[in-house]
Simulated assay, not measured.
Amino acid sequence: MTSLIISIIALCVATANLTWQLALYLLNGPRIQVRMAVGAYGRGGLITVPVEKVADLNETFSSFERQGFSQLVLVVQAVNHGRLGVQLLDFGIDVPKGLSAKPVKDAITETPLPYVLEPHQEGTWAMPFEFGPELIRACRAVWPHEAHPIRGYVHRAGGKKIRSTRSLTLDLRDPESTS
């Protein structure tokens, strides 16, 4: 009888331990946060500003150009806040309806994809700004009476797409201004 009680207790402790290990694995895995920014290349570097901080896109781009940063870009930044690394396969921009654009040969980066984003590291990728207005034009051709906010995204291995929480809305009449 004592052996049975000890066996049952051992089984309960083993089950609790396995459950705890599984919970830790799920909670402490990679946690990717994606941010979108606008920016410009020039003078040997990249200057960016998060989309939520942009009041007037034309003024922001004019300021960049006055400082010698002339190649306008959309920037996608991914940060891994988790405890495990994760492989990122590609990046791009999309709209809530599902239409997306990703650079194939026009990506501007020093970090080639696929890329393993280690814990507490950040990856930054950029594409020419023209991708944004071109995506909006394609969306307006299909859904002419709707707004189309652009979000940055990264694809991680396994197929999961992680999008930025903030978006950028472009005015079609002037593709370089927010509405």
Rank of each mutant, 00 (worst) to 15 (best):
T2C: 13
S3Q: 07
L4S: 14
S7T: 15
I9L: 15
V13P: 03
T15A: 15
N17D: 14
N17V: 14
L18D: 11
A23T: 08
N28F: 12
N28Q: 10
I32H: 07
G39Q: 01
A40W: 03
Y41R: 05
G42D: 03
I47W: 13
P50G: 12
E52H: 14
K53T: 14
V54R: 03
A55C: 08
A55R: 12
L57E: 01
F64N: 01
R66F: 06
R66I: 04
G68Y: 12
F69C: 07
F69Q: 04
Q71H: 11
L74T: 06
V75E: 02
A78V: 06
G82S: 02
V86T: 00
Q87S: 14
L88A: 00
L88Q: 01
L89Q: 05
G92D: 10
G92P: 07
G92A: 12
P96G: 01
L99Q: 03
S100F: 11
A101K: 07
P103G: 12
P103Y: 04
P103E: 08
E110R: 10
E110A: 09
P114I: 00
E118Q: 14
E118M: 13
E118D: 13
H120K: 13
E122V: 15
T124R: 02
T124A: 07
M127D: 04
G132H: 04
L135K: 06
A138I: 06
A138L: 07
C139E: 10
V142C: 04
V142P: 04
H145G: 02
H145T: 09
A147F: 03
H148E: 02
G152E: 10
G152I: 11
R156I: 15
A157I: 06
K160A: 14
K160D: 14
S167H: 10
D174Q: 13
P175C: 10
S177I: 13
